[in-house]
């Protein structure tokens, strides 16, 4: 979790300097859902994300240097610099897509789940999306079809209470995403999305039946993004008190302090963990910074068609 936090804090700074390019959405404050869910996944599983994807890709084991280089548009990036922040793909680590179109990876994950059921029985497809995506047609169409076909797909909604600039209450009268799952008889849980242990336990409980031929399942992680919708968004649409309240529930610090309290980790080790993450990110930034941009010939390579 510290790696994701340190990485995205660095990304935020590098957006400011112009080194990280384009529209960038960080998940600072939402790291527990990425880490808790990905921790129960196996190499054979396949993952999709949305536009706030850095944490999911890193939690799957992607090389931070390659992710940072991708965000800078460098040739050594995960996708050769051609995908960018919203389109991170790392096939080696089972990440098949992320999307700038809200909700757009939900049907992809369902299709992949149907394929996996036949080609890699026991494997699951997972898709991360925000509460904004719950209001798309994709979500509702795919909930129906996933339930109809008992597809081994885990739908993970990171419910941070805001779709872009607008609070949930202005977009839907349905407060809990899991309510939609009930309609289709889908196994669903709502958890404290800032508690990585709770997320992990819920994800493990939901994924196990999927591996045995059941499905689908929905996990709603109640969380909060501590930054604006995108880097540069001053987030004037929310109260300072709300942010302060959630900062007190910071999932990364909370995880570390809980481990120390339980005696699983010394305070020194916890501090060392953060320091190691920051060193790794600093090294990733340095390497990405010195990497070359793609050659002009890359412009029309891998177009297909």
């Amino acid at each position: 979790m510290w790696l994701i936090r340190a990485f995205e804090e660095s990304v935020s700074e590098l957006v400011g300097t112009g080194e990280v390019v384009g529209l960038v959405h960080v998940s600072i404050g939402q790291e527990a859902s990425a880490v808790g869910v990905c921790d129960v996944l196996e190499a054979r599983d396949r993952v999709y994300s949305g536009h706030r994807a850095h944490g999911h890709v890193l939690a799957r084991g992607a090389d931070p240097t390659a992710v940072m280089a991708e965000l800078m548009g460098k040739a050594t990036g995960l996708c050769g610099g051609k995908g960018g922040s919203m389109h991170l793909v790392d096939v080696t680590h089972g990440v098949l897509g992320a999307t700038g179109v809200v909700g757009g990876t939900i049907p992809l994950a369902l299709g992949t789940a149907l394929a996996l059921r036949e080609t890699a029985p026991g494997a699951v497809a997972v898709v991360f999306f925000g509460d904004g995506a719950v209001q798309t047609g994709y979500f509702h169409e795919c909930l129906n079809m996933a339930a109809l076909w008992k597809a081994p797909v885990l739908l993970v909604c990171e419910n941070n209470g805001y779709a872009e600039f607008t609070p949930r209450s202005a977009h839907t009268p349905v407060e809990r995403v899991t309510r939609h799952a009930e309609t289709y008889g889908i196994d669903a849980r709502t958890v404290d999305g800032n508690d990585v242990v709770a997320v992990r336990e819920a994800a493990a409980a939901l994924v196990a039946p999927l591996r045995g031929g059941g499905g689908p399942a929905l996990l709603e992680c109640l969380t909060y993004r501590m930054r604006g919708h995108y880097e540069g968004d001053p987030a004037r649409y929310r109260e300072a008190s709300e942010l302060a309240e959630w900062k007190a529930k910071d999932p990364v610090r909370r995880c570390a302090s809980a481990a120390v309290e339980r005696g699983e980790l010394s305070a020194d080790d916890a501090a060392a963990c953060e320091a190691a993450a920051r060193r790794a990110v600093a090294a990733a930034v340095a390497a990405a910074r010195s990497a070359p941009f793609p050659p002009p010939s890359a412009l029309t390579e891998d177009v297909g068609g």
Binding site: C79, H87, V89
Partner: peptide
Amino acid sequence: RYMSGGQL
């Protein structure tokens, strides 16, 4: 295919 830098 393009956005993944040829991975997909």
